[in-house]
Design a protein around this nucleic acid. Structure first.
Ligand SMILES: [Zn+2]
Ligand SMILES: [Zn+2]
Ligand SMILES: [Zn+2]
Ligand SMILES: [Zn+2]
Lengths: 166, 166
DNA sequence: TTAAATTATGTTATATTGTATTATTACTGT
DNA sequence: ACAGTAATAATACAATATAACATAATTTAA
């Protein structure tokens, strides 16, 4: 968080996560108002569910959670909501996990660079322009015009790494 | 191909593709002999099928092709063969497509950086150390130890881009 | 060179993830 | 009230992947 290229670092287990959720919903609400997007109750609820942890959630976990609310829900329900949320940058899809994670800075469009801990499953999001630029340059050199970059890195977060050394 | 950081560039449609397939099988055969891996007929056939085009192939397309051979085949058959081929670097998995593409240089371990044309579906593979290094450095700065990098870029290859400008 | 252990494959069933399609409901402006 | 639009419901299905157990082939070791 000190580094401006880090959109969200690995969060300690004891932070005030209620505040994370509240902030995410608040920002989404404001962004939607500004862009005249409709953050319907369903979309808002799915966003809230995605934000339950700082790790990727599968579509069917969300589906179960929706059903837990008492409402009836089927796959298209959650996928449509996710489409909206991904499309508008409130949520990122992690391709290597077929799962979804909340984005803390949907105000400006970007596609993040993700660090995924194979031990605790937490995810950090970077947005390092140097990385994007280098990849773009290399691709351009081959005549390739980039429309989207998918950068997902797996390994061990600092906390899990220290614990593993023992 | 002139650039040593490009493991396989976009191939023109008229190249001698039989040679590509033959070379891939030959290399795989040699590598397996050297590493005492077992390139069984099934694995060899799946590798050959993956190499039918320079674009990612889905597991179930391979399954259909195996059945086309007259043999009986079920999902575990092809997934197990793919596991072997991916594990040992003969094939790369494209996470963003849930599909598989042959690797032309399995001799040395690496995880490639892929350019995927959204129009013609052809794939090029780079292995640019500068990109890997930069990502590794940024991750290290966050205390993260990388075990694998997934870099998949979508866009338009040179040929398709020119054609689209019209 | 058998016997045991290991590795690979066959087989059946099921789990997980994602879409297509059509119908219905709720909201927006006239 | 009405038409036009956006969102959701509901059903059905497609695509991708794994679990679990049985059999066959291969390697290793007595
Ligand atoms: Zn939190
Ligand atoms: Zn961790
Ligand atoms: Zn070829
Ligand atoms: Zn192309």
């Amino acid at each position: 968080m000190t580094d401006k290229n880090v959109l969200s670092d690995f969060r300690p287990n004891d932070h005030n996560h209620e505040a994370c959720i509240a902030a995410a919903l608040e920002i989404a609400s404001a962004v939607c108002r500004e862009r005249e997007l409709r953050l319907t109750p369903l979309r808002r609820r799915v966003l809230e569910l995605v934000w339950q942890q700082h790790m990727p959630v599968g579509a069917y976990d969300l589906l179960d959670a929706l059903r837990g609310d008492g409402r009836r829900a089927d796959p298209p329900t959650v996928y449509r909501a996710l489409d909206f949320l991904v499309e508008n940058g409130f949520v990122h899809r992690i391709e290597s996990l077929n799962a979804y994670v909340g984005c803390g800075e949907p105000e400006h469009a970007h596609n993040g660079q993700f660090l995924i801990c194979g031990n605790c499953s937490r995810v950090a999001e970077m947005e390092d322009p140097a990385i994007s630029k280098l990849i773009r340059e290399k691709a351009n050199a081959l005549g390739f015009r980039i429309s989207q970059q998918t950068i997902e890195v797996t390994g061990l977060c600092g906390e899990c790494r220290e614990r593993a050394q023992t």
